[in-house]
Amino acid sequence: MERIAEHPILGAKEKGREVEFTFDGQRLKGFEDEPIAIALKANGVMIHRYTKKEHKPRGIFCAIGRCTDCVMVVDGKPNVRTCVTPLKEGMDIRTQDGVEAAEMKEGEGA
């Protein structure tokens, strides 16, 4: 989804420095300290996890850390609420499958 370059009321948003991170092994860019979920959204990532029982896709729902639908495996730790966790340089972010990192398809990985 597109970032808003200039907002009619809020103007241009101040952003942190640009950093690189990986999403399921793929190198992506975002801005330091913005929520992980926002950086992913800017890169077009909608699916954050698959549920344990039904294996259904989930993404951002409340965006304020309440609903826990957007949790992912971040630097090896599962159930991290990506909508309220700041992005850092070099983070390893993976789609969560149940409560574990989803297995990466062949050919993926840094």
């Binding site: 729902f61 409340c62 309440r66 609903c67 826990t68 949790v71 159930n79």
Partner: peptide, 8 residues
């Protein structure tokens, strides 16, 4: 009783 504790 899951992660969100019934928020929704």
């Amino acid at each position: 009783m899951g992660l969100c504790q019934g928020q929704t």
